[in-house]
Computed example of a mutant assay.
Amino acid sequence: MMVITHVAVALLFAVPVALVEPSLAGPAAVGAFVGGALPDLDLFVGVHRRTLHFPVVGPALAVPAVGLALLVTTPLTVGAALALVGLGVHSASDALGAGEELRPWERTNTDAVYDHVGGRWWQARYVVPYDGSPRDLLVAVAASLPVLVVYDGPVRLVLGGLLGMAAVYTLLRRRLVPYFERVV
């Protein structure tokens, strides 16, 4: 899935915080944004979907972090909890997409995300056929709608801009492969 989809899904978890305690909406959104985007930094460092993706550990860390944020509700605990939720959901949900390859529609590599606990790759499920697919954009838009309704200001502006970028990427995704191959 596109990093934009992961960010939108992570921000969706910030919506209840914004509704229940508006003063914590900002830290929740920042934490969700960071956690939703962070795992994909391993595109630049290490092995993508292995180095910074933790599909078992991420969700396991998110549960006590959310519990702590409920017991000790501060901007820091809420932001950290949403960051861990975003990281966990991003990491685990990559198994719903394609394998790790430049032409995922060809399905030549079914390794979706590495499970550090089990010591093996989780297999791709192709619910979202590949990053930048029309279904990927649909998930990003669907996850964004509640966020765009509840949030205003910078969150709405940034997410709206990201959705615009996602739409362009979706239109160009298959055409961009030859350029990616030259870089890689």
Rank of each mutant, 00 (worst) to 15 (best):
V113H: 11
V113C: 08
V113E: 08
V113S: 05
V113A: 06
V113G: 06
Y114G: 10
Y114R: 07
Y114A: 06
Y114M: 07
D115I: 13
D115K: 14
D115V: 12
V117Q: 13
V117D: 09
V117K: 11
G118S: 10
G118R: 14
G119S: 03
R120W: 10
R120N: 14
W121C: 01
W121A: 00
W121E: 01
W122T: 15
W122E: 13
W122M: 15
Q123F: 08
Q123N: 14
Q123V: 15
Q123Y: 14
Q123S: 15
A124E: 11
A124R: 04
R125A: 15
R125M: 15
R125H: 08
Y126F: 15
Y126I: 11
V127N: 07
V127A: 13
V127I: 12
P129C: 06
Y130L: 05
Y130V: 10
Y130F: 15
D131R: 10
D131M: 12
D131P: 14
D131Q: 12
G132Q: 00
G132N: 03
S133D: 06
S133K: 01
P134R: 02
P134Q: 04
P134I: 04
P134D: 04
R135D: 08
R135C: 08
D136A: 04
D136Y: 03
L137P: 06
L138F: 06
L138S: 11
L138E: 11
L138D: 04
L138Y: 10
A140H: 06
V141M: 10
V141C: 14
V141F: 13
A142M: 09
A142L: 12
A142K: 07
A143H: 00
S144N: 11
L145Y: 08
L145I: 15
L145E: 09
P146F: 05
P146I: 09
P146T: 07
V147I: 12
L148P: 12
L148A: 09
L148W: 04
V149I: 14
V149L: 12
Y151L: 04
Y151I: 06
D152W: 03
D152L: 04
D152V: 07
G153R: 04
G153D: 12
P154E: 10
P154D: 13
V155C: 07
R156T: 06
R156Q: 03
R156F: 02
R156E: 04
R156P: 04
L157G: 12
L157R: 15
L157E: 12
V158Y: 07
V158I: 15
V158M: 09
G160V: 02
G160E: 02
G160K: 01
G161N: 04
L162S: 00
L162D: 00
